[in-house]
C-alpha cells in the first residue's frame, strides 16, 4: 500500500532563483526502508520537510494514504501524527527543559489524557534507554543522548512513516551501530522509514530502495 506519494512536486525557497526540488515524483510504500542520497544541497532535507508538511509545494501534489494533503490545522495535525521527522541537529528539535518533559511535548499537543501520556513516556524511557537521564536537563546531555532523545520524541507519537535527516551525523561508530539496531527494531515493528544520508555503505546495506537526488531532481530509484 502506498503511504505517501509525491506527484511532480517542485519547491523553491523565497529569494532563491533555483528550485530546491524540481518535478519530483515518487512513492513511499508501507513497510519499506528508503535511503535518500545525494550531494549537499541536492534537496534531501527539503524533500523530508515537504513530506512533513512544513513546506508547501509550489507545484505538484503530495498525497497521504491516497488523499491529497490539506494545509490547514486539521490536515497538518493528522499528517504530523502519522509522519514523524527527526531533524539533523537535535539542538533545534529539543524544546523542553528535561528529558521527560521533552518526550511528553508531542503527546500534550495531541491532547492525550495524562494517564496515557505517563504510560507512553514510561514505555519510551525504557525502549530508548533514557531511564537514567529521565529528569536531567536536555542542555547537559551528550550529543549521542540528544540524538537518541530526538528519535524517541518522534517515535513516542507512533508514526506510520518515520523521516530521519542525516541521523548518523556527528555520531561515533558505537553510537552508529546502536542507531542502526534501533532502526532495524523500529522497522520490524511496522514503521516505514526514510533516511536522508551521506553514508553510502549504510544506505546500500540497510535500505530496500535507494533514491538518488541531484540538484533537486530525482536521478534514480534503485532496489
Amino acid at each position: 500500500m502506498s503511504l505517501m506519494e509525491f506527484d511532480r512536486v517542485s519547491f523553491s525557497y523565497p529569494c532563491s532563483h533555483k528550485p530546491a526540488v524540481e518535478d519530483i515524483s515518487l512513492t513511499f510504500q508501507e513497510g519499506k526502508r528508503y535511503a535518500l542520497i545525494g550531494r549537499n544541497g541536492c534537496g534531501k532535507t527539503t524533500l523530508l520537510r515537504l513530506a512533513n508538511g512544513l513546506y508547501r509545494p509550489q507545484t505538484g501534489v503530495i498525497r497521504w494514504c491516497g488523499r491529497q494533503l490539506e494545509y490547514n490545522g486539521t490536515g497538518l495535525r493528522l499528517l504530523r501524527q502519522n509522519v514523524g521527522l527527526v531533524f539533523q541537529n537535535p539542538e533545534q528539535q529539543l524544546v523542553a527543559t528535561t528529558v521527560v518533559e521533552d518526550l511528553s511535548y508531542g503527546l500534550c499537543n495531541l491532547g492525550l489524557p495524562e494517564g496515557e501520556i505517563a504510560r507512553r513516556v514510561e514505555e519510551t524511557l525504557d525502549t530508548f534507554q533514557l531511564r537514567e537521564i529521565a529528569y536531567q536537563p536536555v542542555n547537559y546531555l551528550s550529543l549521542g543522548e540528544k540524538k537518541r532523545l530526538a528519535l524517541a520524541d518522534v517515535m513516542i507519537l507512533k508514526p506510520k512513516l518515520l523521516l530521519l535527516d542525516e541521523p548518523m551525523a556527528y555520531l561515533d561508530y558505537v553510537q552508529r551501530a546502536e542507531l542502526k539496531t534501533q532502526l532495524y527494531k523500529i522497522h520490524q515493528e511496522g514503521t516505514t522509514i526514510v533516511v536522508a544520508t551521506h553514508e553510502l555503505d549504510f544506505a546500500y546495506s540497510w535500505a530496500d530502495e535507494i533514491i538518488m537526488l541531484d540538484k533537486g531532481r530525482l536521478v534514480s530509484v534503485s532496489f
Binding site: 520537510r49 512533513n52 512544513l54 490545522g73 497538518l76 495535525r77 504530523r80 501524527q81 521527522l85 531533524f87 533545534q92 528539535q93 524544546v95 511535548y105 508531542g106 499537543n109 495531541l110 520524541d153 518522534v154 507519537l157
Partner: peptide, 9 residues
C-alpha cells in the same frame, strides 16, 4: 519548524 513538526498549536 521543529515545534510545528511536533504539533505545536
Amino acid at each position: 519548524l521543529a515545534l510545528l513538526s511536533r504539533g505545536y498549536h
